[in-house]
Design a protein around this nucleic acid. Sequence first.
RNA 1: GCCAGUAUGGUGAAAUUGGUAGACACGUCGGAUUCAAAAUCCGAUGCAGCGAUGCGUGCCGGUUCGAGUCCGGCUACUGGUACCA
Length: 816
Amino acid sequence: MEYNPSDIEKKWQDFWDKHSSFEPQENFEKEKKYILSMFPFPSGRLHMGHVRNYSIGDAFARHYRQQGYNVLHPIGWDSFGMPAENAAIKNGAHPKKWTYENIDYMRKELVTLGLSFSKEREFATSDELYTKFEQGFIIDMFEKGLLYRKRGFLNWCPHDKTVLANEQVIDGHCWRCDTEVVQKEMYQYYLKISDYADELLEDLSKLQDGWPKQVITMQENWIGKSSGLEFDLFFDESSKEKLSNAFESFDVFTTRADTIYGVTYTALAPEHEIVSYMIENRLLDDETILAIKAMKNANSIDRQKEKSGVALNISVVHPLTGKSIPVWVANFVLMDYGSGAVMAVPAHDERDYEFAGKYGLSITPVIKPFNGELPEESAFTEVGELFNSESFDGLRSDDAKRAVIEHFESENIGKRVINFKLKDWGVSRQRYWGAPMPFVHCENCGIVSEEKKNLPIALPEDIEITGEGNPLEAHPTWKYCKCPKCARDAVRETDTMDTFVQSSWYFLRYTASKEVQQKMGFDAKELEYWMGVDHYIGGIEHAILHLLYARFFTKVMRDLGYINIDEPFDRLLTQGMVLKDGSKMSKSKGNTVDPDALIQKYGADTARVFILFAAPPTQELEWNDSAVEGAFRFLKRFNDRSSNVLTCKSIPQIQHDTLSKEEKHARKKVYEALKRSFEVYEERYTFNTMIAGVMEAMNALNEQKNADVWTEGYWILLSIMEPIAPHLCWELSERYFTCNNLSRQEIKEEVFVVDSIDMAVSVNGKKRSEIQVGVDDDKETIIALAKEAVSKWIEDKEIVKEIVVPKKLVNIVIKG
RNA sequence: GCCAGUAUGGUGAAAUUGGUAGACACGUCGGAUUCAAAAUCCGAUGCAGCGAUGCGUGCCGGUUCGAGUCCGGCUACUGGUACCA
């Protein structure tokens, strides 16, 4: 029969829909698998990154269904966020209408891909029901003191009177009106992720077996725990006077206490309160003030690139030597790390060295290498021996760190502290299309959380989005309300939540069955059964922020008493980006390839086979139109050659030892493919090699004519391929096996038994020949055979060594 | 800048633990079939060389009997960098 993807794909999509084939079962006795692909933002159309993500996830889900598990494989929509507002600005579309129309379209696209998602668990994070439960959690966090307000700096466009996301700032200017962007200090809501820094770091060890090493390393570095010395630097008398005695000293933090005698200057962040004081009180000249403002307004990446600074013409006193140290402002000193001030030791820190070189500041080495000289053109940052350091001279720098901190502590002039790079999570946004922060500003009571019975606090729909100001702030009536505490007139919070808040608990929400969905966010029993997620699949670009926030949120939910797990994702597969023309395919770059056209031309099975075959999932995938054809031809061949298969209801029993060489080889290839498929799902995730194995088996089957071998081969191969190309496999499986083979298949070890082995023979590590040896041949026999095979290369040469690697190779080492 | 990756034929890639580099495909070339073409099937295909053989996993160096794999130093590209999601 001809391969006609559009017919069979429609047939099976209808069949699955009619039979609700992919709903999880309520049977909690059964072993479960929770397979989750990261949910999409409904940008309008699926892109290839989605196709890749969901093809991988669907392969897991279908595989584990075949293995007999109760599988939860849900999908939903990460539907709040900036692009909906951008669309409103551009086309005048209402964010809600735009979003839900996109969802309707994309849902159909998912169906045409044949993805085995549960239907009853689907939701969008912009659904009021979702907002309702989320606002409840946020109130709990606020009441527990995990949510607080403080001032923070935001990109501000003075013309549009609006806050800009980093991506909306282009070369320091507003994306819409090109006005120069300034940093404005405003009150923001923050979640205290820093309270969980230690646990987030420690629990990474629990994820070691299930998560990629690189993600764990990135998270470790992001959390950035370091131990060091914190101490005060006191101003000298004239500087104090200059500052009108408003400040006596400031805090600095260093991880290199051993270099304390090498301090030659000290640097403050441009946002430091002393700097602000000096600007406000006109203690600096105009040029200096402009330079500092420029530092503040530069983005965080540029600030770390080209170092710049200005002297404040004030000085502090070195705590041990009493020497005078000039105070500078430096762009690379960050206000939200440590205390926003550093002691600078140019001799032993790269950044300090570069800065000192640029501004002609003095460099005093205090650590020298154990052997050899100090480098002349760079900082010496390795472990060495102290000198120029009074009583600490001669200590190793790592011992000196301890000794110096102890000295500071005993003199009561400093202390050991632990610092984290991890900053608290700013969760408020001055935007419309997000979940409103459920708080009320009352003149009497301050900030008051809304009563849970009034949730959700839903968005008004009659708004205008122009890109200027905050639409909720501008709405004529929405924000006016009564204080939940004192009932007086009050004003609603107009900030909405970061969309990372929604994606931090959506995986919990999926565990809610239909019966509980209206009543609560999730049910404890259901959650206990389904969590944690067995395989979480998503882009590597989420390695830090989303995954860290989701881990944090899970721990907070635990401490609020909602759940009792520590980590949400047992195993993580980070897929590589789908690239086109060398860069990420994304809605913001507009370099997407449309999957619909691909499906229309070749069918979903081809799209899925291609995308899984083209590269291992963790690697980047550069788009290549021409390779799709090959995937299609493979499926066509797979379909055509099924004409060799006999109809049956169970796997044929075959006497292996009666078979010809080609028949034996074909069976071996088939079971090798099966073996590999198990490895792929459990450990390796390399679907490309799994498909290659199936292709090899197909090629081997084609070398022989035994109908039973063909039939057994298809029985197994259809089972392996079903998670990848489900429509064709169900079709063939129905035709020949009444679908009886779409289940767990057993490996038959007899096919792997061999009586001879091919070994390579190399001379000095260079392959020169091959030999065939018996399974039980001893080392001497093998070496003798090998020497004969390479006699040409070794005659008249002195043999130094003979190495035999069993079942692999023989290496003869000769002299000269 | 900082953190994390990646680099193998004309192309996508394979080589699971240091042990036969290039499996499986794409493409190209040749053949069969066809009035012809498409589709399909069969065969060849790392580079250089008629060949023997030599060279070959981004670059430079090292460890080892043996390195795509381990170590040191570079280069290029990609992701993240806290308001893109």
